[in-house]
Design a protein around this nucleic acid. Structure first.
Length: 816
DNA sequence: GACTTGGAGGTACC
DNA sequence: ACTGGTACCTCCAAGTC
């Protein structure tokens, strides 16, 4: 029976039937029905021919290729057809044979059989099948399509339609729908609690679920008290079964957790195995599949599993102030809501009240995850649409991969054959490459300054890459007439002037970013904001990508050229500013901080306009802000100005602090707060007097032991396994103690400690480092000399005040 | 044993 | 192993006198 229906693809999958690859799309119709669409697809790859291969010989090669067969136990892969095309590869015109094969998995094996000497390269067999499908058929995620085809019944394709959907269609034609109505997916958030931290070691004692008008905590542990959202089960097995049932009943498009790839789903899997329960979360009742990788990704068939943590890590972390990317910090910052405070006591007995709190706590985690997801949905879906990769991939891929995928999805416009991924040996060689010289940083003169402004280049790296056409495809082996020359110190490199697909694609990204930013400013909406942000992130990833060892279009020469050009332009601009009687105080990479001296703001903006007129290509200098005051300090060692450390206050009284201990999470809160307040008082008042008074007060409090312990906790991240550390630093000493006490330890976690007083003078800092739970008097000297004073010393130094003398003097005075 | 110095380690800036 | 390079600073560990 034939039918035609509107639908939006959400989940992408593929399967084999009779040795051939098929695509399986799961989506919703406009009347909210869930459907599956099976689409056929002839995967292909490219064999690039040597220049001037005679046509007769090409025919022979095509003939030979057509006869290739790859036999394995489960299938025989053969060549469907071959076609000769005029293509481009790395910007050069080439003739290439397009080879269609029945099963994409054997692409590599087929490519290996192409030993003919006229075939100089084989490309396009290392792109994921789903990406290849989207590139070829242009079925973009989260976009409405009209699909017509035959309804499949349960026997077709070996029972592929035997899944929990309303309808399955074998597509004859999929056309983009004329009307694109907004789509809101049905989402279910979940979170588990276990009695042991290590995966699978203990039991899952409760699971919370939150969806639209749905809140539940499932447990089997403590069933005496009644909370309306708590549902009790006989044992862990029953609870797991109920969890699966509830997901089926809720019928979500997306299930989401926070770090659920790394914790919740692996734990559930382990407990399901232990209890002999099939964790049938997929629409086809399959269990989650874990891909390999540093954090294995858990894929549930037909329902997209999104680990929000991973998306936040790649897309948001650089814009977040949070010190960790834990649920609590991120939810506080983005939602203004926190987790419920609850002590995971290690004692086995909990009181009635503690159980009640525990259930609330568990529910709140799912609730926060649910709300965070709603907040992030616009960004996630726009990301998926812009990059044209499915939700599952786009929420887990790093920015380098996302950016590369964007390129791969746009190559067709330029008739380009994709470059291959580097293989093992090549990666090692690339990783061994010495670093190339980076950006320019101007050494500041330490002082308190008044009346400043900052100019900065908009999208500096991308604008340089586009303007100077820096890329793998345009890199020349030697100088040519009309080529762009870049000086890299010892050597020179050359790029062709003819714009490459790489520069064009990046230029387009920058254009779109501009467009959506303008649209957003005119008419703010979450969608235009998300779109603008997606393009911004893509643009920002382009420079790092050039030097990234895993990149298809790896080109360190282009990266080094970009930095070389960046140094030239920033230095030239600094010169212009100084020659026009502005005094440049500081500069880092793409920004210039300067004194207006006697100039007005209008005059400064005129100069900005002037400078912009002389900038090439799409390069552009912009006003960042005007500032009332700013302070730069000396390095702790030596009397020179410290780079990457300054504090500013603008006309509205808003502070901008960079690099100072205030913004460093590995300093205790006391030191950070004191420094922040000192900077604030100095910048507001224009002198150090009030700041000095305040400092003295605080030191008095410290000496009287009036400072709360939580102000004194130092947090340091554990970055690798304890055994790999060479030095026994305080945070490692504490991590070892935690290990002995069987406290949960994991790479990436923040180790917390404080420094306690000790009678033994030979004790090192690590000997005095104590776990926060230990109740010992804090070491006044340490917090004074190693935390507070270092944080404020060089700030007062600017006013020629030697804080140490004053403190020592104060000490004597009290003695007398 | 006191002091210096190099480097491991962590975190921030752009 | 999962974008690049530049920079600051602490604390340990080993070397010097």
């Amino acid at each position: 029976m034939n039918t035609s229906i509107d639908f939006i693809p959400i989940d992408y999958d593929y399967f084999d039937f009779n040795g051939k690859s098929y695509i399986k799309l799961i989506g919703r119709t406009s009347d909210k029905k869930r459907i599956c669409v099976v689409d056929s697809f002839d995967p292909y790859f490219w064999a690039i021919l040597k220049d001037n291969t005679p046509e007769k010989r090409i025919k022979e090669i095509q003939n030979k290729i057509s006869k290739i067969k790859i036999k394995s136990s489960s299938r025989t892969t053969s060549i469907i057809k071959t076609e000769l095309h005029n293509k481009k590869f790395l910007g050069k015109d080439v003739k290439a044979i397009k080879i269609f094969i029945t099963n994409y998995k054997d692409g590599h094996a087929v490519a290996d059989k192409l030993g003919m000497k006229e075939i100089i390269a084989r490309r396009g067999y290392d792109i994921r099948l789903l990406s290849k499908y989207i590139i070829d058929k242009k079925i973009t995620p989260l976009t409405w399509y009209k699909v017509s085809g035959e309804i499949i019944d349960n026997e077709d394709f070996g029972g592929i339609a035997n899944i929990d959907v309303d309808l399955c269609i074998k597509a004859d034609e999929i056309k983009k729908a004329e009307e694109q109505i907004p789509f809101t997916p049905k989402v279910l958030a979940f979170d588990i609690e276990a009695d042991e931290f290590e995966i699978g070691k203990g039991h899952v004692i409760m699971i919370s679920l939150v969806s639209d008008n749905f809140k539940k905590v499932l447990t089997w542990k403590h069933c005496k008290i009644k909370q309306d959202f708590v549902e009790c089960f006989k044992d862990e097995e029953d609870m797991l079964e109920a969890f699966i049932e509830y997901i089926k009943e809720q019928d979500p498009d997306i299930i989401t957790g926070y770090f659920s790839d790394g914790f919740d789903l692996p734990y559930l899997r382990a407990r399901a195995v232990h209890n002999k329960v099939k964790l049938a979360l997929g629409l086809d009742n399959s269990q989650p599949k874990f891909a390999r990788g540093r954090i294995p990704s858990a894929r549930t068939s037909g329902i997209v599993h999104i680990d929000l943590f991973r998306f936040i890590q790649t897309a948001y972390s650089q814009y977040l102030q949070s010190e960790t990317l834990g649920l609590n910090d991120v939810a506080s910052e983005l939602l203004g809501e926190s987790k419920i405070e609850f002590e995971h006591s290690r004692k086995k007995k909990r009181t009635e009240q503690e159980w009640k709190d525990f259930f609330e706590y568990n529910l709140q985690d799912s609730l926060l995850t649910y709300k965070l997801f709603q907040k992030a949905w616009c960004d996630i879906s726009e990301f998926s649409k812009v990059i044209q990769e499915p939700l599952f991939e786009v929420t887990r891929d790093t920015m380098a991969t996302n950016s590369e995928n964007y390129t791969l999805h746009n190559l067709d416009k330029y008739n380009e054959i994709p470059e291959k991924k580097p293989i093992h040996d090549e990666i090692s060689a690339r990783r061994a490459r010495p670093r190339y010289q980076g950006a320019f940083v101007l050494q500041p003169e330490p002082s308190l300054y008044e009346n400043l402004a900052i100019f900065d280049f908009t999208s500096y790296w991308p604008s340089i890459i586009v303007t100077f056409n820096l890329s793998r495809a345009t890199l020349l082996s030697k100088k040519q007439k009309d080529s762009i020359q870049v000086d890299l110190g010892e050597e020179k490199v050359y790029f062709s002037k003819e714009q490459s697909f790489f520069a064009k694609i990046l230029g387009e990204i920058i254009e779109k970013r501009k467009l959506y930013k303008q649209q957003y400013n005119k008419n703010p909406s979450p969608i235009t904001r998300a779109r603008s942000n997606a393009y911004k992130l893509l643009a920002n990833a382009s420079y790092g990508y050039l030097g990234f060892f895993g990149a298809r279009y790896y080109c360190p020469e282009a990266g080094a050229s970009a930095t070389s050009i960046s140094r030239d332009f920033i230095k030239k601009t600094i010169d212009i500013m100084n020659k026009n009687k502005y005094k440049v105080i500081y500069s880092d990479t793409d920004s210039i901080a300067f004194l207006l001296n006697k100039h007005s703001q209008t005059q400064a903006l005129k100069l900005l306009e002037q400078i912009n007129k002389n900038l090439p290509g799409i390069m552009e200098l912009d006003l960042e802000d005007f500032y009332k005051r700013g302070i730069w300090v000396t390095k702790r060692s030596g009397e020179f100005g410290a780079k990457k450390k300054y504090a500013l206050i603008n006309q509205k009284g808003k502070m901008k602090i960079r690099g100072f201990e205030t913004v460093r999470r590995d300093w205790c809160r006391l030191a950070r707060e004191v420094q922040n307040n000192v900077l604030n008082l100095i910048l507001k008042n224009g002198n150090e007097k009030k700041a000095l008074e305040y400092l003295k007060e605080t030191i008095k409090k410290l000496k009287k032991r009036e400072i709360e312990k939580k102000q004194l906790i130092i947090r340091t991240q554990l970055k690798k396994p304890i055994s790999e550390y060479k030095a026994n630093t305080p945070h490692i000493a504490i991590a070892k103690q935690m290990q002995e006490k069987e406290m949960p330890i994991d790479i990436g976690m923040l180790i917390e400690y404080y420094i306690a007083e000790s009678k033994n003078k030979k004790d090192r800092i690590r000997d005095k480092a104590k776990l926060p739970e230990e109740n010992l008097p804090y070491d006044i000297d340490y917090y004074l000399n190693n935390q507070i004073l270092p944080a404020v010393e060089n700030i007062f130094q600017v006013f020629d005040i030697k804080i140490k003398d004053i403190i020592a003097g104060g000490k004597q005075a009290t003695l007398f």
